[in-house]
Each structure stands twice: as structure tokens, then as C-alpha cells.
Amino acid sequence: MVKHFVLKCGLFLLFLVVIDKAFLPLRNSVPNRVSDPRVRELLEGNIDADILIMGSSRGDESIRNTELEEATGKKVFNLSFHGTEVEFSTFLLELFVDRNRLPETIVRVLDDPHELCKEEYIDFRFDLLYPLVKYAPVRKELVKRGQKNWLLNALFVSHQVNWQAFDFRQPPAHNDTLLRYGTQVELNDKSLPKGEYVRDSSLNQSLELREKVQAFKRFEAICHERDVNLVLALAPNYREVTQGFMQRIKELADPETHLFEFDRCLQAYADSTCYNDPTHLNRKGAGLFTSELATCLNKLERE
């Protein structure tokens, strides 16, 4: 009886594995339905840029890509994603360097003060990866990070895909510059109302996470191993820069890494009309910062 039962279970498992393969077309079609195709393009090796911008929303909203292209004469692509942190950027960079033409320079826009700490609003964005399980490195990463199970992932296509694969609705429209420059949001002219936006202004190093520090170092190592210039850039906030933040970055950064900070003496940055919200620049502020960054990159080029 036990043998009969075990045999039936085995047969059912086989039945399951076989009919599961019917989900392959579904899994393979999901990448064509994503609203932001940048990670897919990266995985397909279609990104061609001389200057690559990486980071979170700070990277996305602090730089005006068209103006940076004009000022540097280089092709720029912005691979910053809202709500992402250094581990996510490092994972993307690892994928990028294996599949795309290497850029001359990578600008990573830092998150002050959460670059190396746990923060509610910046995370490893699994939602950007779920639709891309067609690609083996994405599956591997999801398994590594406990989102998918190694055994089920190996056996079942249906375990690889998740609920997002069933979203056949028209994805939200994105702006035209997304594929050309990688800009995710259109910078706007909204101004921050004047006021006090207070926070703890000194760095609490005890909140640092080892994995984030390791990812930070790995990001640098990938660039340096491939002779890509790395610029770690600090964009302004409508709040004071966290005391000790850049000092900590300097301690961690290799000597070959270039550190670039916005000009703290520039009075315009003290004006709330440069900001969309307390932590993000608007079109006007991003124009100022882009111009500063372009000067820095041109200087690096000459050196």
C-alpha cells in the first residue's frame, strides 16, 4: 500500500512537472509588457552610453540628461530607479558590464544619509525583477535573496513567474525619453513651499549594514577592474547635508574613485524653488546640479 501511494505521488509530480511547461510562453512574454523596459534592455545588451548614471530617485531627478549630453558631448544613459539602494545598483551594474558596451564613466548619485543604512523608502526592488524571470541571472538573484526557492525554481516554470505575469493591462504610459536617456520621470517645475524640513543632521554609523557596505565596495571594484571612471556624486537636499556622511564615504572609497559634491557655497541651492520636495531637486535645481556635474566630468576627461 505504501509503495502504491508513493508511486501515485511520483506520477502526480511528473504530471505536474509536464503540464507546468505550458507556462513557458507566459513567462517569456512578460518582459515585453513591462512599463519601464530599462532592465530588460540592459539584460539584452542594448544600452549604449559613454556616461552611465546610477542611483535611486536622487540619481533620476537630480540630473538633466539632455543638458549633460550637450555639455559633455557624450552619450548619457540614466539607469537610476526610484526607491532602490546600493545593493540593487550593484546587481544591475554586474549585469550591465557583462552584457553592454562599457561606459567611460559611471556616476553614482549617493543617498544622503541612507546610502549604507536600512531605510524604509529605498530597497532592493524585486518588483522590477519579477517580470524578467525569463533571464537566468534574474532567477538566480531571486533565489539568492530568498524570493524564490531553489528546488521549485529548478523544477517549475510556474514557480518562477508570479502574479505580475498575469497583468495584461496596458502598462502606465512613460515619457518618450525613457529609452533614449533612461529618464524615468519628467522633471517638473513644482516648487517646495518654504519652511523648515528638520531631521537628525549627524550620521549614525551604528545603523550601517554590512551588506550595503560590501555592495558599495563591490560597486567600486567592478568599475576599477574594468578601468571605468567612477564618480560618487552628492546632490543637494533642501536640508543640511548630514554631518560626517561624505567623510564616511571618503573613508570607504578607493583612491581612484572621484568624489563630487555640489557647491555648498552656491546660494541658489538654499532656495526652496530649486526643489520638488525636501530631498529631490526640480527642473531648475537639476539644471544647476547638472551644469556643475558636467564641469566636473569635463575636467576629469581632460585629466
Partner: peptide, 15 residues
């Protein structure tokens, strides 16, 4: 049974 198992797979995140 397979439909139930696949539904579990589709809608499951972390343990």
C-alpha cells in the same frame, strides 16, 4: 489539484 498548486506558486512571495 495542479491548479491549486500553481495558484500557490503564482501568489507566493517570501516564506
Amino acid at each position: 489539484y495542479a491548479a491549486m498548486i500553481f495558484t500557490i506558486f503564482f501568489l507566493t512571495g517570501e516564506e
